[in-house]
């Protein structure tokens, strides 16, 4: 493990919010790191700070204190524009909902990151068609999000997230709105992509079925890392 490339590192990160007169500590001195190829779940009950952790990890939110790195990029010193650029280059996202741009079809959604990165057309098309086939969406390329089921939409989101081969894929409760069968199939897909492309996955969940598939689980309680343990079955 020690020789592997460091993908994400958080050091003593805290995030406080003002809520009326009260200060809420959403993250409390969190320190963690992810290496290339890891498949990690952040688990915890609602309000434990999972999403805040994901936000801070990729520069969507700034820590009140502490330091964050993605690869060798130090996020604290980057401006909004540079952070946007970094996410474009290094991070893929899978959200629980509002996943896709509604006016673009499946192929265009999957292509979005590559387009924004300025990848040439031919290379883009080849990569997207291949990845859509890989996630089981061959033949549905021209469908808009409204013409796809929830599971299919999440698959498009997965395709978009990994099409540009990012260093880190971040997923926020990716199976929350899916039925068990679709959720399981999506998890298997993510796992397969993790193994085949050595892409690092970090996802939040409180679903035990999802946790079971993670190789490592970071348990958050009240914004603090309560436990950080590898899964024996994957260890």
């Amino acid at each position: 493990m020690g020789s592997k490339e460091m993908i994400l590192r958080l050091q003593d990160v805290s995030r406080m919010y003002e809520q009326g007169q009260e200060t809420v500590r959403a993250l409390d001195n969190v320190t963690l790191s992810l290496e290339k190829g890891e498949f990690v779940a952040i688990a915890g009950p609602s309000g434990s700070g999972k999403t805040t952790l994901l936000n801070v990890a990729v520069g969507l939110d700034r820590p009140t204190q502490g330091k964050v790195w993605i690869r060798d990029h130090y996020l604290n010193s980057m401006n909004t524009h540079a952070l946007a650029r970094l996410r474009l280059e290094e991070v893929g996202f899978i959200f629980q909902s509002y996943n896709l741009v509604p006016v673009l079809n499946a192929e265009e959604n999957a292509e979005l990151i590559l387009l924004l990165r300025g990848v040439p057309r031919q290379k883009r098309k080849t990569a997207v068609l291949q990845i859509l086939e890989e996630v089981g969406l061959a033949g549905l390329e021209k469908r808009r999000p409204s013409e796809l089921s929830g599971g299919q939409q999440q698959r498009v989101a997965v395709a978009r997230a990994i099409a540009a081969e990012p260093a880190l894929v971040l997923a926020d409760e990716p199976t929350a709105n899916l039925d068990s069968e679709t959720a399981l199939s999506l998890l298997k897909l993510m796992e397969k992509l993790n193994q085949e492309h050595a892409t690092t996955f970090l996802f939040s969940t409180h679903d035990p079925r999802v946790m079971k598939r993670a190789h490592r689980i970071i348990h958050l309680v009240d914004g603090r890392v309560d436990r950080d343990e590898p899964q024996p079955s994957h260890g």
């Binding site: 946007a84 996202f93 924004l116």
Partner: peptide, 10 residues
Amino acid sequence: GLLHSLGLTP
């Protein structure tokens, strides 16, 4: 927000 997360600059 989605586009922002994906890296579409302001």
